[in-house]
């Protein structure tokens, strides 16, 4: 069966199959970007590990940030089946030549941000990721299956933490509302530009990499999340939000903000990248040592 037949019959492409260059490149770019998002995403939440307000929350947060490292690792592995190397991809990230999700360029300035990230950012990520478990590229789909299975706790812990805050003291409630105010719009932007302005979407859909349009997934997220905010007694920061009898319709998204953050002008773009570059540079001597040791002690075949 050739590539197109596999795609047409909703089959799966495997690493050594022949595939169009553009398909391979699209996948490498998308999977790498996804992997980068996981490891950059460790920073905003990792920021609160040492300050978590209870030992239970600390353990949950450590486990979650650890999962993100694991998820990055699964995804780099999936990208590597396409003939690229993790080190190469990391170099591209560090050089600013590959992107990661814009959401991680916002700061986590209060504990409620950790809760809001779990609830909103992971909630949006799950919406995006579940369809990817049926992606036409086998290794990516399998990595996503594993990730989605592990990630189901991420959103729940966030919502639980948010529930406690919104039922807590006045200061905690205010912290929770403030976090929702700051994370709501960036979370909606996680689904990407409107389909009409998303030139690559159609091709990705045709290749079975993407299963649903950006707008449809965003709408599903809004429909799922608005009632949750109501449950929490929090106000979604969108005066234009309305119910049309079938759906919760949100107001206009400020796409100029998205474009700015994408360009590198978000509040934390530089900080996140510099942190990554620093960690990578600090670890170089350790990686070299492991290599040197292995070549000294390689078992004779």
């Amino acid at each position: 069966m050739d590539f197109q037949q596999v795609i047409d019959t909703d089959g799966r492409i495997e690493p050594r199959d022949q595939m169009p260059d553009a398909y391979r490149q699209t996948l490498v770019r998308q999977i790498a970007q996804h992997a980068h998002s996981e490891i950059i995403g460790m920073q905003p939440e990792g920021n609160w590990i040492t300050r978590a307000p209870s030992l239970r929350r600390k353990a949950i947060l450590v486990a979650k940030v650890q999962d993100e490292a694991g998820h990055g690792l699964y995804l780099y592995g999936a990208a590597e089946t396409l003939g690229v190397d993790r080190a190469e991809l990391l170099d591209l990230l560090h050089a600013g030549r590959q992107k990661y999700s814009t959401i991680f360029n916002y700061p986590t300035t209060s504990w409620a941000d950790v809760a809001a990230i779990g609830w909103l950012v992971d909630g949006a990520a799950i919406m995006n990721q579940v369809p990817l478990t049926r992606c036409s590229y086998g290794p990516y789909a399998r990595a996503m299956t594993r990730i989605c299975k592990e990630e189901s706790f991420h959103q729940r812990q966030g919502f639980e933490a948010m529930t406690v805050l919104s039922r807590g003291t006045a200061a905690q409630q205010q912290m929770a509302q403030d976090a929702l105010d700051r994370w709501w719009w960036p979370a909606l932007m996680m689904f990407g530009p409107p389909d009409a302005a998303s030139p690559n979407s159609a091709q990705s859909m045709a290749w079975g990499i993407k299963r649903f349009g950006n707008d449809e997934l965003r709408q599903r997220f809004v429909d799922a999340t608005v009632p949750q905010a109501e449950f929490l007694g929090l106000t979604v920061p969108d005066p234009a939000l309305s119910w049309d009898g079938e759906h919760h319709r949100s107001g206009e998204i400020d796409w100029t903000e998205f474009a700015e953050v994408m360009k590198g002008n978000g509040p934390c773009n530089r900080q996140r990248l510099e942190f990554r570059q620093q960690a990578h540079a600090d670890g170089a001597w350790v990686r070299e040592a492991a290599q040197a040791y292995a070549s000294k002690h390689r078992p004779v075949a």
Binding site: D67, G70, L73, G77, R146, Q291, R298
Partner: peptide, 24 residues
């Protein structure tokens, strides 16, 4: 088969596999 990882020798590869792929 569950996935892949990087390590410079077999000893670390096995331990990394334990940490990465059997956390649950």
């Amino acid at each position: 088969h569950v996935g892949s990882l990087h390590a410079d020798d077999a000893h670390l590869a096995l331990r990394n596999a334990r940490d990465v792929y059997t956390r649950r």
